[in-house]
């Protein structure tokens, strides 16, 4: 068969087409029966509670290092007292949502791709269909719903503990009184910042889990294929988090700040 110079593009185009098709099935599955409530609750626990430790650790260390670094920079301008504003604005708008999403992409994205990939190569997905269940409703929707709804909550907790970490460093290392720090935190935040910090994780949670489900359900080639899918889910999920974050930031700035 004759090869065309367009051949290398076929696979990525096919992947995008299949991903969009999966999103369509998810959309239909969300508004029609059956809904697998027990599976949804299980995924809320697995994705939400299961990610709590890693997300809190990420948040607290990010807040602490941010305070340390900001303190040095602000000293040059004699503005050490405003460290709280810098920590809160950075954590709420950017670092909280993005770092939480990246940690979830690593922990949850790989887990979803590995689980669904293993089910694919061992015929469990085919068995599910043969037994009258729709894998999108049974497996994908609970994970996507849990990711979309739990990531904002995880982000709030991560951001909150990050700002608390910043206050510890401010008080112990920068010698900024705690009341001054928290006053600066509140003064440095606008309502739009909070909206941005809440909207981003909703979109990022959806992207991470839907990409991981898509990659998992496209797994072929035995255990090697499962390994490939796991890596792909983390890499694509992480890059997608950064790319979507940029696009979303641009869009939200236009919509809310201009």
């Amino acid at each position: 068969m004759e090869r065309s110079f367009l051949d290398p593009l076929k696979k990525p185009v096919l992947e995008v087409q299949e991903y969009i098709r999966l999103l369509g099935q998810v959309g239909r599955g969300l508004v029609t029966r059956p809904i697998y409530g027990r599976d949804i609750i299980e995924q809320f626990e697995a994705i939400g509670i299961g990610s709590l430790t890693v997300v809190l650790l990420t948040g607290v260390f990010t807040g602490m290092v941010l305070a340390l670094q900001s303190g040095i920079s602000l000293d040059r301008f004699g503005a050490r007292q405003t460290v709280g504003s810098l920590v809160s604005a950075s954590m709420v708008k950017e670092l909280g949502p993005v770092l939480t999403a990246l940690m979830v992409a690593g922990r949850v994205g790989s887990g979803i791709a590995a689980e669904l990939g293993s089910m694919m190569v061992t015929d469990q997905i085919a068995a599910l269909r043969a037994l009258g269940a729709d894998p999108v409703r049974k497996l994908v929707i609970p994970r996507v719903l849990a990711g979309t709804m739990m990531l904002p909550i995880l982000t709030i907790l991560s951001t909150g503990i990050g700002m608390w970490g910043g206050s510890i460093i401010s008080a112990t290392q920068l010698m900024v009184p705690t009341s001054v720090y928290w006053n600066s935190v509140v003064n440095g935040l606008y309502v739009q910042d909070i909206w941005m910090g809440l909207i981003k994780p909703i979109v990022l949670g959806f992207v991470i889990t839907s990409v991981a489900c898509h990659v998992g359900l496209r797994t072929k080639g035995g255990t090697q294929g499962v390994g490939r899918s796991t890596t792909t889910a983390v890499v694509v999920g992480s890059v997608a988090v950064l790319a979507v974050d940029f696009l979303l930031t641009k869009l939200l700035i236009v919509l809310m700040y201009d």
């Binding site: 015929d123 469990q124 085919a126 068995a127 043969a130």
Partner: peptide, 16 residues
């Protein structure tokens, strides 16, 4: 249609 068919998969394909 599937509700009237039972399938035994290679290796069983039991849900782990």
């Amino acid at each position: 249609v599937r509700s009237e068919i039972g399938m035994v998969f290679q290796e069983g394909a039991l849900f782990d």
